[in-house]
Design a protein around this nucleic acid. Structure first.
Lengths: 345, 345
DNA sequence: CTGAAAGCGCTTACAG
DNA sequence: CTGAAAGCGCTTACAG
């Protein structure tokens, strides 16, 4: 007998009025509202979410799905935690809460998603690590669950997504290296089916062709997106003959492993090999020579994700007009020393 | 009219029976159960969680609270994601789901916790980053919400916690350094009020005294638990006169910044300065010389956390007898090259 | 401006 | 073994 009923009894007032007062409905006497608010505060009353959800048909919770596969865990860094601040800054305007949904390794991501969605734990979802073919997108679209994807995919039709500007990064990395005289430019891409690998590689290829440099599949190194992967990529790199004079990494932490392999081989990054990383990262900031890479605000990206998501939710679409949105998120070059030399050829 | 009612109508059976069949209650005809399960699968029916929660009074969801302050975001690494696998491996046995609750920076952790708890979004909680005085613990105890803390605190009475073996780590680090002839051993501890800083420092102090070495407050360097912090700690270290010959870091990523500062100063870690880090970390694995540090399984820790939590929940206590538990989680020394020299004195 | 009542989707005593 | 009914805690038309 705790809950709104008890609070109402305490105030000697009906539960309907209590509810209206608490929820800021206009048709409540200001005096009454104050009394209700004060009593709620005093007794520590907060509406039971299950009761609300059941009645309203919404949970007021937004889920951020995370695939906690071994590789993700090692590499996600604090990418996701970095997003939460921005996401919450927008969601809190609408009294929506954010929860993170870590998909267990041994559960199929689509099954997990389906379970969370059909159980109605969340009103809407943010998914990430989109695969080239991603069944989750089709499922969410079919189930009419509002969602936004962090990452493009070939799946689905007209859905909202935000993706990093892989094209811009690849183009500006290649441009920069070519301007410094490089012609044999290697690239490290993920060994998995994650869509960004394809996009990045395509963009690299186009950029090369724009400069009249033939695309050479031998210079594409597939590696894990980790330090270990960077070490392995370095290993492959030094075996290439003739050796590339530059390498573009899709994942900045690879630089740490790559540097280490280079040093072992007596190759000095920034002098014998130009290196360009991807996202600027506190962890890579201490590399020597400093890494040329690209900067973005995770917080701003989080906020944009939230707004894009809300735009797809009928209840909030009015605040964020425009409907389904597709955004390419720009990154800004941060010049370091790792590619600060020119080739004398 | 979707939901269990629709499913029941489809099967031409009562909703009560459908519910019992779905929930594995014994008093259901096997034939009926099969039909229900098949139909549920076919129609993609999953019980609405709000309905269940409201009726049962439980959500079957366990929350892992994360404070996403700027410092945590930069430093948490994948500590939390690393825990989720182990947590889920245990929780899934009881059909409990895990969600992560990121507390916004601008919200008081206790208020956030209170809101989540009173709204009944979760049945129980795992909290971390315990402060020396942590109001959350008192609140949860008073509200009778089952919880387990990752980290000890001076707050609260008899509650369940698991904490890393800071005493063991400090003792074995000091023992090892003393055995190699070090007497001036510095230590880097967090600049915040997080409880582990106090525990670690106390243990370091006792270990020194055990070896008859006087405790010197000047050798205690307060720094942020990050690479930047490591760099600053290094900066302070080289200003100390006489300079310490060894340093123990409470956070392994500090080693990256520390190394960098040492190299700038012409001091070679592993030759001129002995360094011992804390938790082994993929990120620090590529340091040269390799870092002496301590190993633990995040997955196992997650599993232990889950079992400890379930032991405090009336509905599950039978499976995990023993009541409130306090566990010191051991770490195993991984010898590296960063302290592999002896002082000739 | 307020109260009484319906009903969101489920589970679970209670009859039979 | 099954069905009919109550009720979990809320919000919201509907009267007044």
């Amino acid at each position: 007998m705790r809950g709104i009923r008890q609070l109402a009894k305490h105030l000697d007032i009906s539960i309907g009025t209590v509810s209206r007062a608490l929820n800021g409905k206009p048709d409540v006497n200001e005096e009454t509202r104050k009394r209700v608010l004060a009593a709620a505060e005093e007794l520590g009353y907060v509406a039971n979410q299950s009761g609300r959800s059941l009645r309203q048909g919404t949970t007021n919770v937004i889920g951020l799905m995370i695939e906690s596969s071994k590789e993700t865990v090692e590499n996600a860094d604090n990418f996701f935690l970095g997003l939460t601040g921005g996401l919450q800054s927008v969601l809190s305007r609408h009294k929506l809460d954010l929860i993170m949904l870590p998909c267990p390794n041994d559960e199929d991501p689509q099954e997990y998603l389906k379970r969370m969605v059909t159980r109605r734990v969340v009103d809407a979802l943010i998914i990430s690590a989109t695969q080239r073919i991603d069944k989750r997108i089709d499922f969410l679209a079919k189930a009419k669950i509002p969602f936004v994807a962090l990452g493009r995919s070939s799946s689905g039709g007209n859905y909202s997504w935000i993706d990093l500007d892989f094209e811009g990064v690849a183009a500006s990395a290649v441009d920069r290296l070519v301007a410094k005289g490089h012609r044999r430019i290697a690239i490290a891409v993920p060994s998995t089916d994650v869509n960004l690998g394809y996009i990045f590689l395509d963009a690299y290829r186009s950029a090369l062709e724009r400069h009249g440099i033939a695309y050479d599949p031998a210079l594409v190194i597939r590696a894990k997106s980790s330090e270990q992967g960077g070490y392995q990529a370095g290993d492959e790199l030094i075996r290439l003959d003739p050796r590339p004079t530059a390498i573009i990494l899709i994942y900045e932490l690879m630089a740490i492993g790559l540097y280490r392999r280079m040093v072992e081989a007596g190759i000095v990054p920034g002098r014998d090999l130009a290196v360009i990383g991807f996202r600027e990262e506190p962890r890579a900031r201490f590399l020597q020579p400093t890494l040329t890479c690209f900067r973005m605000s995770l917080r701003d990206l989080g906020a944009e994700l939230a707004e894009t998501l809300l735009a797809t939710m009928p209840a909030y679409a009015d605040f964020y007009p425009g409907g389904a949105r597709n955004t390419i998120w720009p990154l800004e070059l941060v010049a370091g020393e790792s590619d600060a030399f020119s080739l004398d050829s």
